[in-house]
């Protein structure tokens, strides 16, 4: 009996897909659900079974009937609606508007996470700082040519300026946290420069500082390696070159193996196989002393990375001015 019911259900399900119009539908109803339909004719045989079997079969019978009835009703609904308005499945979906977070903010989030995992505090700092914070405390005295390394926007308050680097907060946060400590300062900096594809008067910088009992060039090399390998999601080689900054000694330029050609030489790295990516060094004892740090006990390293520069490399962006262009044709790509 159960088998017969299953067969009827299967037949109904098969024929359901062949119902094309209301006439087919009516035939379907008569065949399965009608007074003399397949189900009705089966029900007349119930009385032949013993009571307990009859109860069980009855339940299953009702289930099958319900199923078939639902098939009938849903097809009926579909055919009637379709008759009223043509439902075009090829019509494009409705446009759902989407808000967006700027690429810079998205990348800052990733960068913060990597440095946070390495134990760095994350700081913001102020954009308007004193000459003392931006220069003097960093061993860049007034009337010294090393000031020419930064083209500065001065404001109409004596001895104040738009920070030229996030290093301006080194001493401030070293005083706040006391060693051993690691932190990054991430934010906008300003340079009085003519702008072109590679130069901007306003960009973001990541300043990193680590002061402790073993914060040295060897640890710096590994911090760079971890950071860049995570950020570019690639194996990366770090190369230090000799350089000069007034607030570090030794001072370094940091190169990474080219993110495109992995050191073989391509147009991005101008055939050198390496990309200039950061400035770094051991913090000058003068600077540590400004932060009241015992230079016989602690030492530390600091580095500065241009945010736009690494984003441009990662996403193949040709012009740094796009970031602050407010152009949705750029912003909506990411």
């Amino acid at each position: 009996m159960k088998e017969q019911l299953d067969n009827i259900l299967k037949e109904a399900q098969d024929s359901y897909y062949h119902i094309k119009n209301l006439k087919d539908l009516e035939n379907f109803r008569i065949k399965f659900l009608g007074r003399n339909g397949l189900l009705a004719s089966l029900s007349s045989k119930f009385k032949d079974f013993p009571l307990e079997v009859r109860k069980e079969i009855g339940q299953y019978f009702n289930f099958v009937k319900e199923e078939i009835n639902n098939l009938y009703l849903s097809k009926k609904e579909f055919l009637i609606t379709q008759k009223k308005i043509f439902f075009d499945l090829s019509h494009p979906g409705e446009k759902i508007e989407k808000g967006r977070i700027h690429l810079i903010s998205k990348e800052i989030l990733k960068i913060k996470k990597i440095f946070s995992n390495l134990g760095f505090n994350i700081e913001e700092g102020r954009e308007l700082v004193s000459e003392k914070e931006n220069f003097d405390l960093l061993n860049i005295p007034p009337n010294h040519p090393s000031r020419d390394l930064w083209d500065t926007f001065w404001i109409n308050k004596k001895e104040y300026l738009l920070r030229t680097h996030t290093s301006a907060h080194q001493v401030e946060y070293l005083l706040k946290y006391k060693p051993p400590v690691k932190f990054i300062v991430i934010g906008k900096v300003y340079r009085h420069e003519a702008t072109d594809q590679r130069h901007e008067m306003q960009f973001h910088q990541i300043e990193g500082v680590s002061v402790g009992l073993q914060s040295n060039l060897s640890e710096l090399k590994s911090v760079f390696q971890i950071f860049f390998e995570n950020y570019f999601n690639k194996k990366i080689e770090i190369v230090f070159r000799n350089s000069y900054f007034p607030f570090t000694e030794p001072s370094l330029e940091v190169d990474i193996s080219c993110v495109i050609c992995k050191g073989k030489g391509c147009s991005l790295c101008k055939k050198s196989g390496y990309l200039e990516i950061a400035g770094a060094g051991m913090i000058h004892p003068y600077v540590l002393q400004q932060a009241k740090i015992n230079i016989n006990k602690y030492y530390g390293y600091a580095f500065g990375i241009g945010l736009e520069r690494i984003i441009m490399l990662k996403f193949n962006i040709p012009d740094v001015r796009l970031f602050h262009s407010m152009d949705l044709r750029f912003i909506n790509q990411f």
Partner: peptide, 24 residues
């Protein structure tokens, strides 16, 4: 400088993030 080998940071620092940045 090429002879300097990387060593992983050993000193633990419990990282804190500025409240403003989190709010942004």
């Amino acid at each position: 400088y090429d002879s300097i080998n990387p060593t992983y940071p050993l000193q633990f620092n419990y990282p804190k993030e500025d409240f403003y940045l989190l709010f942004y």
